[in-house]
Lab assay of single mutants.
Amino acid sequence: MDTYKLILNGKTLKGETTTEAVDAATAEKVFKHYANEHGVHGHWTYDPETKTFTSTE
């Protein structure tokens, strides 16, 4: 398992979190669920070199 990072740049919520996942697709599902639960619906990007997802509203 690898550690993946999420950076949230929402209108009402900003911050970072991490998750352990078997691959990027699994981490993306976890992070999108997390963002949706916190009302963040933004544009998603992923940097495979740093294993970092960013959601920007």
Rank of each mutant, 00 (worst) to 15 (best):
S55D: 05
W44E: 00
M1Q: 08
V22S: 11
F53D: 00
G42I: 07
T3R: 09
P48G: 06
T3P: 03
E28C: 15
A35T: 06
H33E: 15
Y4W: 04
T26Q: 12
Y46C: 01
D2R: 11
T3F: 07
E28S: 06
Y34Q: 02
T3M: 09
T54L: 07
E37W: 08
A27P: 01
K14Q: 13
H38L: 15
T18I: 08
E37I: 13
V40C: 04
E16R: 07
T54C: 08
A35S: 04
M1S: 08
N9E: 09
L8H: 03
V22Y: 13
K5N: 05
T52N: 01
T3A: 05
F31R: 00
E28Y: 15
K11W: 11
K32F: 08
A27H: 01
T54H: 07
F53V: 00
L6V: 03
N36Y: 14
P48I: 08
K14L: 07
T56D: 12
G10I: 05
S55R: 04
T45L: 06
S55A: 15
I7S: 03
K5V: 09
H41N: 13
S55G: 05
E37H: 09
F53E: 00
T18R: 07
H41R: 11
G39M: 06
H43M: 13
D47M: 05
T18L: 08
T26C: 07
Y4F: 09
D47C: 09
K5H: 11
Y4M: 02
V22D: 07
A25V: 09
H33S: 13
V40R: 02
Y46R: 00
V22L: 12
K5D: 03
A24T: 06
L8E: 02
K14S: 11
T17E: 05
M1L: 13
E28M: 13
T19N: 03
Y34E: 02
E28L: 15
E49R: 11
I7K: 05
E28N: 04
N36K: 14
V40Q: 04
A27I: 02
T50D: 04
T50E: 06
T56L: 07
E49Y: 11
K32M: 10
T54I: 08
E57W: 07
T50C: 04
K32G: 03
A35L: 12
T17R: 11
N36R: 14
D47F: 06
F31D: 00
D47V: 05
E20H: 10
G15M: 15
M1T: 11
N9Q: 09
V40G: 03
A35G: 02
E57Y: 06
K5A: 04
T56C: 08
D23F: 02
S55P: 02
D47W: 05
Y34K: 02
G15P: 04
E57T: 05
D47L: 04
T26S: 13
E16W: 14
T50G: 04
E57S: 05
T50N: 08
A35D: 01
E28K: 07
E37R: 10
L8Q: 01
G10N: 04
A35H: 02
T52C: 04
T3K: 08
P48M: 07
A27S: 01
H43E: 15
A24W: 13
T56E: 10
E37N: 09
G15W: 15
E37L: 14
K51C: 04
N9W: 13
E16M: 11
G39P: 01
V30C: 07
A21W: 02
L13V: 14
H43G: 07
G42Q: 03
P48H: 08
T54M: 10
F31P: 00
Y46P: 00
E16Y: 13
T52V: 07
K51Q: 05
V22F: 12
D2Q: 15
V30S: 06
V40I: 11
W44A: 01
G10V: 04
T19Y: 12
T26V: 07
T26I: 07
T56Y: 09
K5I: 11
V40K: 03
G10Y: 12
T18Y: 14
A21E: 03
T19I: 15
K51M: 06
L13W: 15
A27M: 01
E37K: 12
F53S: 00
G42E: 04
E16K: 07
E20T: 12
G39S: 05
A25H: 09
T50H: 06
Y46T: 00
D2M: 14
T17N: 05
T50S: 10
T52R: 02
K29Q: 12
T54V: 08
F31T: 00
E57M: 05
I7N: 03
D23G: 03
T17Q: 08
E20S: 10
F31C: 01
G39T: 03
E49W: 11
K14H: 10
K32T: 06
D2C: 14
L13E: 07
M1F: 12
D47G: 01
L6C: 09
T52L: 04
P48S: 10
Y4H: 03
H43S: 13
L6S: 02
L6E: 03
G39A: 05
K29V: 11
K51V: 01
A21H: 01
T19R: 04
T12R: 09
T3S: 06
G39I: 04
W44G: 00
G42Y: 05
V30F: 15
A27G: 01
V40D: 04
T50M: 06
V30R: 09
T54G: 03
E20L: 15
K29P: 01
A35V: 08
V22G: 09
T56M: 07
D2L: 12
A21N: 02
A24C: 14
A25D: 09
F53L: 01
A25L: 10
I7F: 06
L13T: 11
T19D: 01
E20D: 10
A24D: 04
D47Y: 06
K11V: 14
G10E: 03
T17G: 04
G39Q: 07
T54A: 06
E57R: 03
G39C: 06
Y34G: 01
K14M: 09
F31H: 01
L13H: 14
N9D: 11
K32A: 06
K32Q: 10
M1V: 11
N9G: 04
T45N: 08
H33Q: 15
L6H: 02
A35K: 01
H38P: 01
T54K: 05
A25C: 13
N9F: 11
P48N: 07
E20G: 04
M1Y: 13
A25E: 12
W44S: 01
F31K: 00
L8S: 02
T17W: 15
T52A: 04
F53W: 05
V40E: 04
D47Q: 06
M1C: 12
T45E: 11
E16A: 09
E16L: 08
T50F: 06
T26H: 13
L13Y: 15
N36P: 02
T12F: 14
V22T: 11
G42N: 03
G15L: 15
I7R: 05
E16H: 09
E57A: 05
T19G: 02
E28Q: 09
A25I: 11
G39N: 10
T3Y: 06
N36C: 13
W44P: 00
K14D: 05
Y4K: 02
D23L: 03
Y4S: 03
P48K: 08
T17V: 15
T50V: 06
T52I: 07
G15F: 15
A35C: 03
E37V: 13
E49V: 11
A35E: 06
E49Q: 12
K29D: 07
H41K: 12
Y34R: 02
G10L: 08
Y4D: 02
F53C: 01
F53K: 00
L6I: 03
T19E: 03
A25Y: 10
A21D: 01
G39F: 06
T18P: 01
Y34C: 05
K32N: 05
H41A: 11
T45G: 06
G15Y: 15
P48V: 08
A24Q: 09
T52M: 03
T17F: 15
S55W: 13
L6T: 02
F31E: 00
D2G: 09
T17M: 15
H33C: 10
T45A: 10
L8V: 08
T45M: 08
V30G: 03
K29I: 12
K14A: 08
G10D: 03
M1P: 09
K14Y: 13
G10S: 08
